[in-house]
Design a protein around this nucleic acid. Structure first.
Lengths: 176, 176
DNA sequence: CCTTGATCGTCAAAGGATTGACCATCTGAC
DNA sequence: GTCAGATGGTCAATCCTTTGACGATCAAGG
């Protein structure tokens, strides 16, 4: 609480915010607040790092990479499955694939048993491009993970997965 | 690796992805990969929960809430400071404030010592609205945090802050 | 069959966010 | 003082994403 607001930066803001909130809203849980703020800000910094160092230089948006990534890993997929795995709407996949197809990274093919559906698959060039890009993406992940000891990484992953699989996560269904 | 791709969902995808990647790209660090994927997906679920249950029903975008939030906590702020604390560009703040001012939640005032700058402040109604909204926001944070024991929460926060203040975070400067 | 309801992909519209350009203004060196 | 360079807020252009609507298609019950 000693800092003047104008001197705060993106990170020290968390401490300042919790102090101020405690004074005005005693019902707020400061631990949950710190957890939410820290997690959100860390994830934002991570995505910004990935996007600016790895994906934008390749001419891909963050959403475009996510579509390529799920196709790379989960093989040919119908469009709706790609949307679910990438965590975006069907319309977003449709729009992104238009660009990816133009760039010869993805192909669209009809599905025999369902004439409404479209099967998305990586081209050979798309496969190679994703593999190369993800390798660099993972180098950035390694650089972040290097701040922790191996034991700390294991603990952190365990706690994040506990949150991810907990009841609050089940209640918050994304893009149903 | 036993699941068929079409049966995967947003969360079980992580295990499947790591197995596949290990087979194709041995240079990838699976622990860093799991950390990145889990962190990103958890944060996405959190923001989606906040936005859909607390902020959209109030007619606020996620970005609009972030501007109100930093003004609520860090008092009257010049526009560029609000942008830095909220983690967005100056142009985004300018656009969002246009709406917030129209809704009588924020005021724009000239700064005596610098005629380029604009001082942003919450109105009385804005202050009350943010306080009420954040209280509900924090209830959602508490619901998520309840998946962990108090000791686990402390450990998790400590590890997240270690990542946030580590060298990788320092190298990835957002919106310089 | 056929009809009713659900689902798939796409489109249009709207809102958000970034970048880059711009003008006004400030700061510091001369 | 004055001038060059840096900075602040805004605007225009662009891109991405969501929602809602739509036509086409599937599935199940009579």
């Amino acid at each position: 609480m000693t800092d003047r607001p104008a001197d705060l930066d993106y990170l020290s803001f968390v401490d300042y915010a919790i102090g101020k909130t405690q004074a005005e809203l005693p019902a707020v849980d400061p631990v949950a607040m710190r957890l939410g703020l820290t997690l959100h800000r860390l994830a934002g910094a991570l995505v910004y790092d990935w996007e600016s160092t790895v994906h934008r230089p390749r001419g891909w948006s963050w959403g475009g990479f996510r579509v390529l990534f799920v196709l790379w890993l989960a093989g040919p997929l119908e469009s709706r499955h790609a949307a679910r795995l990438a965590g975006m709407s069907r319309a977003a996949v449709s729009a992104l694939v238009k660009t990816l197809e133009r760039d010869s990274l993805v192909t669209r093919a009809p599905v025999p048993r369902d004439r409404r559906a479209v099967q998305l698959a990586l081209t050979e060039a798309g496969h190679a491009a994703v593999a190369e890009a993800y390798q660099e993406h993972n180098l950035r992940e390694q650089a972040w993970a290097a701040s922790l000891t191996p034991a700390e990484r294991t603990v952190l992953i365990g706690l994040l997965e506990k949150l991810t699989t907990g009841p609050a996560a089940a209640a918050a269904q994304r893009l149903t």
